[in-house]
Every structure is written in C-alpha cells, then in structure tokens.
Simulated assay, not measured.
Amino acid sequence: MNCKVALVTGASSGIGEATALKLKALGYTVYAAARRVERMHPLAQAGLHVLPLDVTDDASMQACVQDILARSGRIDVLVNNAGYGSYGAVEDVPSDEARAQFEVNVFGAVRLIQLVLPQMRAQRSGTIINITSMGGKMHTPLGAWYHGTKFALEAISDCLRLEVQPFGIDVVVIEPGGIKTEWADIAAQKVVETSGRGPYAPQAQAMARSMVGQTSRKYQSPPQVIADTIARAVSARRPKTRYAVGFGAKPLIFLRRLLSDRAFDGLMRLATGISRQAA
C-alpha cells in the first residue's frame, strides 16, 4: 500500500505506452488503460496492470477508477494522454465529429479528473498531468477543432490548479511538439477525408503532406522525451506548471508570443505549404 499508483490513459501506443513503462521503472504500480487492450500485451508482460478504458463512456471510466482503488487503495498520478487530432476546414467538419473531438480530448480527461479527485483529496496528495500540445498555444491551418480542444484543456488545467492546490494536489500541463506517434497519420487521413475535395482541397492536401512528409518525420522527437519529462514532473517536489518539449515546441510557442496574428498566420502558411496553393 506504500507504493505509489499511476493511471495512464491512451497507453496502447506512443506517448502513453512510453510513459507507462517509464513510471513502472520509477517504481510506480502502473495501470495502463486504453480501448485497444489487445495492443497492451507487452505492457502486461512487463508487469503493468492493463485495463480497458473508453474515455467517451462514463461507465467505463467509473469502472476503471473503481477497479484501481479496489486493488491498490490509492491513486497518486493521473496522466490524461488519450486523444487524437481531427483536422478539416471549419465549414466541412460535421458537428458529430467536432463533438467527438471534444468528448475524447476534453470531456473524457475532465471526467477522469473528477473521478480521481476525491481519493487524492483524502490522501492530501496527487499529481494530475494533462497532455495538451504546443497546439494549445498556437494554431495551424484546418486545425480549428483540434486546437480548440487543446486550448480548452490548457484553460481547464489552470483553473483546476488553483482549486486543488490547498489539498496538496499538483496540476501539470505537458505541451508536446512534433512526436513520432500515430497522431500525424491519423490527422493527415482525417484532413483529406474531410476537406480533400471542394474549395479547401488544396489546403487539405498541403496540410497532409506537411504532417507525414519526410522532413516532418525526420525531425520528430521520440515519445520517450515526453515520458522522461513526465517522470521529472512526478519526481519533483514542486513541479513546473508547464513543460514544452519535443520538436518545435519551445520555438513555435515563443514565436506565437512574439509575432502578431497576421505575421504568425504567414509563418504557418509558409511552414505548411498552403501559401503555395491556389485559392
């Protein structure tokens, strides 16, 4: 019962998988949770507890947290990592898809926070880590709904930090840059499916190329850099409120602060290639 306990969502691949293994190496009892349980067999073999979790299903989230408390009696770290990128022109994205993006990236994360907080308050300790993105501080073409979720989670994290500080609970935001995961492939597929035909098609094709092109993949950081950052945060007596890590995160967030809106728009058009597409 003295061993610290961590719940990591979206643990079937990428950042979640790397984080779950890193926390296990630090001595945590780790519960790795995701929809794709069959993909977490290597984690189970490594001694992690594997749980099914659908962050769009309240019953699934309640069952997950209750299972952890029944087995371990406490939750010290929640890593809200589950999420995906849905790209497409605002005019094109169906309302159902927009809502789904918020359900996964925002409401699922917040509901898990609500479920773990009573135990953390009772313990008078805990760390909530929300994985946002450098996209929670800047914008890219055809990414309105995705960026909207990340901006929202950033704001929620700030308010939450004020609320839970008196109970000894830390709230940490991790803002990844370009990371070598499935994220880019899914986002590129979404943008082509959604806006690959019609007036926004040139922009959609350019965005897809910029996401999965050789140059982008060459410079993306491995998921381990995020896992290592999370490890530093949970090990610190007083962690930072934010960590911007991974390819492009710090310079792009800095440029967004430095440049005017239109100057940053121009930078994004140039960087993504949409400036070379006919209107």
Rank of each mutant, 00 (worst) to 15 (best):
A201S: 06
E175S: 11
T215Y: 09
P176A: 11
I186M: 15
G148F: 11
A188W: 04
V245N: 02
I169T: 13
E163K: 13
W183V: 00
T181C: 09
E193F: 04
G177I: 06
R209V: 02
I169D: 07
V212G: 11
V164Q: 15
A204G: 01
R161S: 13
E182N: 14
A152Q: 05
I169R: 13
S195V: 02
L162F: 09
R161F: 12
R237Q: 12
C159R: 15
Y243W: 12
Y219L: 10
R232E: 11
P222S: 00
D228V: 05
I179E: 11
G213L: 01
G198L: 04
A155G: 15
E193W: 08
A227H: 03
V212E: 06
Q165F: 10
V245S: 04
V173Q: 04
A231V: 02
Q203D: 07
P176F: 07
S195H: 07
Q220V: 00
A204H: 06
V172H: 15
M207C: 08
L162I: 02
M207P: 00
A184C: 01
A204W: 10
E154Y: 12
V164L: 09
R237N: 12
K180E: 01
V245F: 09
G168Y: 08
Q205T: 00
P166R: 15
D228H: 03
I174H: 05
P166L: 14
L160T: 08
R232H: 07
D170S: 12
I156M: 10
K218P: 03
Y200H: 11
K180W: 00
Q165Y: 14
T215K: 15
R237H: 13
F167W: 13
T215M: 08
G177K: 09
D228A: 11
P199N: 06
G213Y: 05
K218N: 10
T194C: 08
W183M: 08
V245I: 12
P176Y: 12
P166N: 13
I186T: 08
L162S: 09
S157V: 15
A201N: 03
V172W: 15
G148Q: 06
K150A: 07
S157Y: 13
P239S: 07
V171H: 04
F151S: 10
A227Y: 03
E154N: 07
G246Y: 00
G177V: 09
A206L: 04
Q224H: 04
R217S: 03
T215F: 02
S210R: 04
E182W: 11
T215V: 07
T229I: 06
D185S: 12
P222A: 00
I169M: 10
S221A: 14
K190F: 04
P202K: 09
P223I: 00
K218H: 10
A152D: 04
A244E: 10
F151D: 04
T149F: 01
C159K: 10
V164Y: 15
A233P: 01
Q224E: 13
A184D: 08
G196K: 05
T241H: 09
G178L: 05
S221G: 09
I156Y: 15
D185W: 08
S235T: 13
I186A: 14
E154A: 06
G198C: 11
A208V: 00
S235D: 08
F167Q: 04
M211T: 00
I226W: 11
